[in-house]
Design a protein around this nucleic acid. Sequence first.
DNA 1: TAGAAACAGGACTTTTTTAGTACGATAAAG
DNA 2: CTTTATCGTACTAAAAAAGTCCTGTTTCTA
Lengths: 162, 162
Amino acid sequence: MIKLGKLTDYAIAVMGQLVHEAADSPAHDKEGAMSSSAHYLASRTGIPEPTIAKVLKMLAKGGLVTSMRGAAGGYRLAKPADQISIGEIIAVMDGPIAIVGCVEEDKEHCNMWETCPTKENWGRVNDAIKSALDGVKLQDMLSTPACGNVPDFTKDVDADCA
Amino acid sequence: MIKLGKLTDYAIAVMGQLVHEAADSPAHDKEGAMSSSAHYLASRTGIPEPTIAKVLKMLAKGGLVTSMRGAAGGYRLAKPADQISIGEIIAVMDGPIAIVGCVEEDKEHCNMWETCPTKENWGRVNDAIKSALDGVKLQDMLSTPACGNVPDFTKDVDADCA
DNA sequence: TAGAAACAGGACTTTTTTAGTACGATAAAG
DNA sequence: CTTTATCGTACTAAAAAAGTCCTGTTTCTA
Ligand code: SF4
Ligand code: SF4
């Protein structure tokens, strides 16, 4: 159906929450302050903790959030919210935007890449999609409800985005 | 991974084949001539017959091909190849282009559609994707190998598109 | 230094989606 | 009335995604 995975939804919700946390930070002057734990974020967003933990790990591995271990550790955004595109988030969560097999390096996977005349067109389409996705920033998406398909636990979140 | 389903690949391959058939048609002047059976198309494309039959049924239901039953029946393109966009094909095979739940009529599915401020942005993104997909026509994609992921049976097809 | 809090990484299970198959019914041509 | 072919749908199997859990490492605090 050409739709995003649930984890991607969660990711946007979680990162949105991180934006809020950063904004509400009491120690706003200090640089290395504010970080939110998976546990805390789970309670704020309503997303089950094991799942949100997985999402955060993926985001950390993708470099969209930075993590700190140990007590008082947690996660924080790696960049300002207006410099993170939803294209990046999708790329980290759902893998690279590649509607056909040959767009990314995986040229090997198709046994006729050399002679295929359609790949140019697919590439063009793919680029168009990618830039559409890169044009919208996390900042633009805010006010919490991340997106669709997320059934119920978005409910206690909207207290924040009134 | 934001990729197309296999059936969509098949669909483009099959429709490409139908374009060839129409072009090679001996009775090119007569209007109601040429139609190719699922069996024949299966043998030409190498796609297993039950599967291709399913694809053709979906395409017929979606109005992209017209069908005729009975002996000497079969399928043919409903429109010229340069008037069929891959967006249409994807819409028929994979469902509507809707990366988030609320884009299509299904506003019911999300319990906070009324108050959600992000839907506008998603709509914008979705439209961009849709128009990228609608900009490329079946005609542009031709010379057979439909696309990716299709493992092997694209092999005997490329005799046609040399 | 011991313990608690928190992330890292990966293995595992369950659920959902997609792909593929099969069959009885209907329709047209000869 | 028999043959060829689509129609519709139900079913099964395979693949992918989502969700869970465990074991190890890091860091803070008492
Ligand atoms: S949360 Fe907003 S954007 Fe997402 S499905 Fe609901 S109304 Fe649409
Ligand atoms: S058939 Fe062409 S467009 Fe499709 S994956 Fe292979 S090289 Fe790419």
